[in-house]
């Protein structure tokens, strides 16, 4: 096995096969984005590009939660389908990636587009809900649940730009490149998304 794929997975505190619990486990505890991107060495990516099953397995351990964090807020109830299809697209097209260090940016772009595509399709089938009911006060345990309800009131494109700018920390230019839209479109879309989010959140 390649040392890089081995090291990447060992760093996640997996249990040995002799001590396994009786439920399936993903790498735990949840890793931050920085941790997810750390330890993914160029050689591991290149081994995965050559079809090395163990290198691909280790790469999936890092990419699946990363892609899930992009697709979840954009595609909402279709997040699982979007995440899986985005992950498949990333891995299937992996041999075409020229620069291993660009892996996560490339995966983010694919995930965001896939999530928007799923959310648009869902929106065509089921029009967005009307104005949100009363939201709980800050500190209310229902807040986490209601983030989802606030996001549901936004368009898929607004959710995508909010995620890329405010959660992923991309610049407007970078977000525009990821979504393949003009810079001006990102500015106006972001402004409307932030206003809508704040208005609904604070109402």
């Amino acid at each position: 096995m390649t040392e890089s794929s081995r090291n990447a997975s060992q760093g996640q505190g997996q249990r040995s096969g002799a001590e396994v619990p009786r439920e399936p486990s993903a790498p735990s505890p949840p890793l931050s984005d920085v941790e997810l991107r750390a330890d993914v060495e160029d050689e591991q990516v290149r081994s995965a590009q050559r079809g090395d099953a163990l290198a691909l397995s280790a790469l999936i351990d890092r990419l699946a939660p990363f892609v899930g964090r992009i697709c979840g807020p954009i595609a909402l109830e279709h997040g699982e389908d979007a995440t899986q299809e985005a992950l498949i697209a990333v891995l299937r097209d992996l041999p075409a990636l020229r620069e291993p260090r660009a892996l996560f940016g490339w995966a983010r772009r694919i995930a965001a587009r896939e999530a928007v595509r799923h959310a648009r399709a869902a929106r065509r089938e089921r029009p967005p809900r009307g104005p949100l009911p009363e939201l709980p006060a800050p500190g209310d345990p229902a807040l986490v649940r209601d983030v989802r309800r606030v996001l549901e009131a936004l368009s898929p494109e607004q959710r995508a730009i909010l995620l890329l700018r405010d959660l992923e920390g991309l610049s407007e230019q970078e977000a525009a490149a990821q979504l393949e839209v003009e810079h001006g479109t990102v500015k106006s879309r972001l402004s409307r998304a932030r206003s809508a989010f704040k208005r609904r959140w604070a109402s």
Binding site: P24, A26, A64, P65, V67, G68, R69, C71, G72, P73, L76, G79, E80, A82, T83, Q84, L87, P138, L143, V144, V147, R148, L151, L163, L167
Partner: peptide, 11 residues
């Protein structure tokens, strides 16, 4: 301060 929805794929 906001917990955004995320997706965890099963094995």
């Amino acid at each position: 301060t906001v917990s955004w929805p995320s997706v965890e794929l099963d094995p």
